[in-house]
């Protein structure tokens, strides 16, 4: 009885008793949710255009952030370091297309997936060798991101919202809007979507595979840099954070591998739910640190009931 009470009643009483704290938890969850959504978005973009399950997306985030901070440490001014980092990400996209994707075109999905694991490892080794493995501080102020915080007093309580988090949420929103406009309105964007529907058909109407792939991986690189800045501002920059990049995977399970909406909604949902679960169930009942697995287990359970994910279409199998 007490157990049932602890699981089903007490957490909600706690939420009602301290609504300001509840709001704080939801806000923190939303901010990490934005990060998950951004990583997942880079991922969806690549999957949509090339059917490649890009395991390296999370590492590209760390790599981009590390390059930015590393360049700044070498004496490059912050505002020059950003375009330089973008240049590096572009070179990376070209290199990946030339060295990895082009020779592996038409291979089964699983082979390409494993190749991206190879890319992941290579980037980890390469990044650490050049920039070192220790944790670095993101050059938040130098980039002109405000670092103060807003304080509110809802329900007579206390709610703290850091300005850099708010910047992150707004920035991510703008990035997503630009991306959607690009995909839906521009000629290149339409080509990317066409490629996702049918490679052969897209090729036959004269869309160049190589160009599109470089472009898509470069866009994924831009998203990675944006994510890296936001995320680095919160937690510092090092490859130890790659674990958090795995969080994008349950988001994809939940939202579907091809759905931009799914990535955003799934990311936000998982960000908020895992925080709530950790604070109200995990810490009091399970000894805490449930954020390592909650998202995966949650996505797994949802998928058992909806194998196509929340936003995927129902699969009709044919023979």
């Amino acid at each position: 009885m007490e157990f049932l009470n602890n699981v089903f009643v007490a957490p909600f009483q706690d939420m009602a008793a301290a609504p300001d704290f509840f709001m704080q938890v939801v806000w923190e969850g939303l901010v990490s949710g934005v990060l998950y959504a951004l990583i997942a978005l880079g991922f969806v973009l690549i999957y949509k255009s090339s059917r490649i399950f890009n395991f390296a997306q999370g590492i590209m985030v760390v790599f981009a952030a590390l390059t930015l901070v590393g360049l700044h440490e070498m004496g490059v001014p912050a505002l020059l370091a950003v375009p330089l980092t973008l240049g590096v990400m572009f070179l990376l996209a070209v290199a990946i297309e030339r060295v990895v994707l082009r020779p592996l075109v038409n291979q089964p999905d699983i082979i390409l997936f494993m190749a991206t694991i190879g890319i992941t490892l290579f980037l980890i080794g390469f990044g650490e060798m050049i920039f070192g493995g220790e944790n670095k501080v993101m050059i938040t102020e130098q980039l002109g991101i405000p670092t103060g915080s807003f304080e509110f007093e809802p329900f007579g309580g206390f709610l703290l919202i850091e300005q850099k988090d708010l910047t992150a949420v707004v920035g991510a929103g703008v990035l997503v809007l630009v991306l959607l406009l690009f995909l839906n309105r521009s000629k290149m964007g339409r080509a990317i979507r066409a490629l996702g529907d049918d490679h052969q058909a897209a090729l036959s109407v004269g869309i160049s595979l190589s160009t599109i792939w470089v472009l898509v991986w470069f866009i994924a690189g831009i998203i990675a840099l944006a994510t890296g800045i936001v995320w680095g501002a919160r937690a510092g920059v090092s490859f130890a954070l790659e674990v958090i990049a795995y969080k994008a995977l349950p988001v994809l399970m939940l939202g579907g591998l091809e759905s931009v909406t799914g990535a955003i909604v799934g990311g936000l949902a998982i960000g908020v739910l895992e925080k709530l679960f950790e604070i109200y169930w995990g810490q009091p009942l399970l000894g805490g640190n449930t954020e390592t697995w909650f998202a995966f287990v949650f996505a797994l359970i949802v998928l058992l009931f909806r194998p196509q994910g929340l936003f995927g279409e129902k699969i009709i199998e044919r023979v």
Partner: peptide, 20 residues
């Protein structure tokens, strides 16, 4: 440390090479 990083890089490159 360099040896370790080199090791990771080589394994990564090796995976890609084998797959290709």
């Amino acid at each position: 440390a360099v040896v370790e990083h080199l090791n990771i890089m080589i394994i990564g490159a090796l995976i890609i090479a084998v797959l290709i």
